[in-house]
């Protein structure tokens, strides 16, 4: 079976006045129908730019896909026109943004903002539109959905707002949802609720998800597969359980070591020393080399190409035999 989304060697650069920022530099991964992929990495490693590349909503002017393919349902999105992309956005691929405080428009009611999706993609009006909106709000379990139609975002709690964002994303029954740190802005208790809700909806609708996060706890809870991103490239990707049990890349190992453990002594938090590199001035060799505890001579000279460590487990590291 061919994958729902197949990203191959995607390169998205940002051409700024002071030089080229290689935000996404040769990224490949795939998501099957109904599957959840976790894209993990530190802030500024190119996660968000990867998401925006899939939807082709890049910062203008300056952001550009320079190479690679984004195959969605077998068709290359990179080649699509803006008009064709508009029919895909919101209908087949949608996205949940980090903070619904800022991602919902303060000037319009919930009905208006959720309804827009149906008005555009299904050309619905009046009564039928309203029913669809209520249906979408019920899907994300907003209590007393009918009474919330005329509410403005600032009249709702953070958790409810993020559900509305979910209703907007899921309303038109897309086959892929990109969730860009959707729980970061929520309280911890609400976070768990929200994640469970997404899982339920996924079981119900069979929507595939791409979960962008820096929280490995969320990954463990939500994802089937994980891709670890560092400085514009994916350094390791594997089945979720496999990655947690047998991490191979020193960066992944470092990330996992950073997770506080309940049984360990609590006096010290572990961190990876050093800073991620500037995406406008990357080192010649492996991008992680300057921070890597096991850095070798070759690491400083040449970037290691991707190699298969075991079944479906790919690593870009010289430590792993080809």
């Amino acid at each position: 079976m061919s994958a729902l989304l197949d990203v191959q060697n995607l390169k998205t650069y940002y051409f700024a006045r002071r030089g080229v920022v290689k935000a996404v530099d040769g990224v490949s991964f795939s998501i099957d129908q109904g599957e959840t992929l976790g894209l993990v990495g530190e802030s500024g490693c190119g996660k968000t730019m990867t998401c925006h590349s899939i939807l082709k909503l890049l910062p203008k002017p300056g952001g550009r896909i320079v190479e690679g393919q984004v195959l969605f349902e077998g068709e290359d999105l990179v080649l699509k026109t803006e008009r064709q992309m508009r029919r895909i956005r919101g209908a087949k691929i949608s996205m949940i943004l980090q903070d619904s405080m800022t991602s919902l428009n303060p000037a319009y009611t919930i009905e208006n903002q959720v309804g827009e999706v149906f008005a555009i993609h299904q050309k619905l009006k009046g009564r039928a539109l309203k029913e669809k909106v209520i249906e979408a709000l019920k899907l994300v379990k907003i209590p007393a959905a009918e009474t919330r139609l005329r509410a403005f975002p600032h009249q709702m709690s953070g958790g409810m707002r993020q559900r509305v964002a979910g209703a907007i994303a899921l309303g038109a029954k897309p086959s892929l949802i990109i969730a860009d740190e959707p729980t970061t802005a929520l309280d911890v208790t609400i976070q768990a609720q929200y994640l469970n809700l997404l899982k339920e909806i996924q079981a119900e609708t069979g929507v595939a998800m791409m979960f962008v996060t820096h929280d490995l706890g969320v990954v463990a809870r939500m994802c089937d597969k994980v891709a670890v991103m560092y400085a514009g490239r994916i350094v390791e990707k594997a089945e979720m359980k496999d990655l947690f049990r047998h991490p191979r890349h020193p960066y992944t190992i470092g990330l996992l070591a950073c997770l506080p453990k309940m049984d360990a002594e609590l006096d010290k938090l572990v961190s990876i020393p050093g800073q991620p590199p500037d995406l406008g001035a990357l080192p010649d060799g492996c991008h992680f080399a300057p921070r890597c505890p096991e850095c070798m001579e070759i690491c400083k000279q040449k970037y290691p190409e991707e190699r298969l460590a075991r079944d479906e487990h790919y690593v870009s590291c010289w430590l792993v035999e080809k």
């Binding site: 939807l55 909503l57 919101g90 996205m95 943004l97 555009i120 993609h121 907007i168």
Partner: peptide, 8 residues
Amino acid sequence: KLARIKGV
């Protein structure tokens, strides 16, 4: 941004 994501 969200409006564009919706396909507006």
